[in-house]
């Protein structure tokens, strides 16, 4: 049972970037915009965060720079889809390709350069006992991701701003006709989503593997996009979903490396579980009608008030 504690710690590391990126995408989609460029924004955030950490050694500054870089990348998407009404799906895919290429170009001088990992937020004395290590042993982005789950839930459910954002996502013409700036709200959401993706990307070099490697997010941006649907646009379900995916990804490796009780379930099954889980959840969603209607009604549609 001692092995459970390191498993949890590894699992939290695997789940945090996915959760952060998915939370950002959730807000974007709630405003009616589908941004498939999460993977690209994460990569730009990763190289920006890496470079900031490399030059300053201040991981908080690096996270900030990662957020800014992600937000700046998302503005490209915002300008094309919101100001020019370009197709959101195609633009999002293009953004991922752009982010992959741009980060590779910007990162070329940084290969073979290790950086310092971000330290845990709390003093080491709090985390000496293994059980307390599970609670206090992480660095700031982990606690930030939990805080953001709550904050986004509160914002969307309980505040006026959240109501406006949801209105824009559900019925943009109505929101427009009663005087809300659909474009303004959507721009804000897109930039927020970009910043969250940027932080998620910066977590890779700062928390997981202190180096720059091309495509180091390795498809986790796509998992984040899928998780939003998986969680039927609900922040707490998103939290559960991200940790389920993190658990499965981690357990696959621990089962393969460990043998003994952990390998009772074959690692192939662990590897297949995320996909099985996605199918099961999609089936459940379609059985429970109320959940399927949770998709924002204007998701992915360009806003063209003059038509």
């Amino acid at each position: 049972m001692e092995i459970l504690i390191p498993i949890v710690i590894t699992l939290v590391g695997a789940a945090t970037p996915i959760l952060l990126a998915a939370l950002g995408e959730l807000v974007v989609e709630k405003a009616g915009v589908l941004n498939l460029g999460v993977e690209g924004m994460m990569l730009v955030g990763a190289i920006a965060g890496f470079a900031a950490q490399f030059y300053t050694g201040n991981p908080y500054f690096a996270l900030l720079i990662g957020a800014c870089a992600g937000a700046a990348t998302s503005l490209i998407f915002g300008f094309l889809t919101l100001s020019l009404s370009a197709n959101q799906t195609a633009t999002g895919l293009a953004l991922t390709i752009f982010g992959t290429g741009f980060s590779a170009l910007a990162g070329a001088p940084f290969s073979a350069r290790p950086i310092e990992l971000m330290r845990p937020l709390f003093p080491a004395e709090l985390a000496t006992h293994p059980v307390w290590r599970v609670v206090f042993g992480y660095s700031a982005p982990v606690y930030f991701s939990f805080f953001m789950v709550f904050a986004i839930w509160y914002f969307l459910k309980k505040t006026r701003g959240g109501l406006i954002l949801r209105a824009v996502g559900e019925n943009d013409l109505s929101a427009h006709s009663i005087g809300y700036s659909v474009k303004g709200v959507r721009y804000a959401a897109v930039v927020f989503g970009g910043a969250m993706a940027g932080i998620a990307g910066a977590c890779f070099p700062l928390l997981l593997t202190p180096q720059w490697a091309e495509r180091m997010t390795a498809g986790r941006g796509w998992i984040a996009v899928a998780l939003v649907v998986f969680a039927s646009w609900k922040p707490f379900r998103l939290l559960a979903g991200a940790y389920l995916f993190g658990l499965v990804m981690t357990m696959e490796l621990y089962a393969k490396a460990g043998g003994g009780p952990l390998s009772v379930i074959p690692s192939e099954l662990w590897a297949a579980l995320p996909y099985l889980a996605t199918i099961i959840v999609l089936v459940l969603i379609s059985i429970r009608r109320d959940a399927s209607t949770n998709a924002p009604a204007c998701l992915g549609k360009p806003f063209l008030p003059s038509n």
Binding site: I3, P6, T209, A218
Partner: peptide
């Protein structure tokens, strides 16, 4: 061949065991 975070997690899984 190239997923640094997964390689790192695999190493963690090994060291922890």
């Amino acid at each position: 061949w190239n997923d640094p975070a997964k390689e790192a997690d695999a190493a963690r899984a090994m060291i922890d065991q």
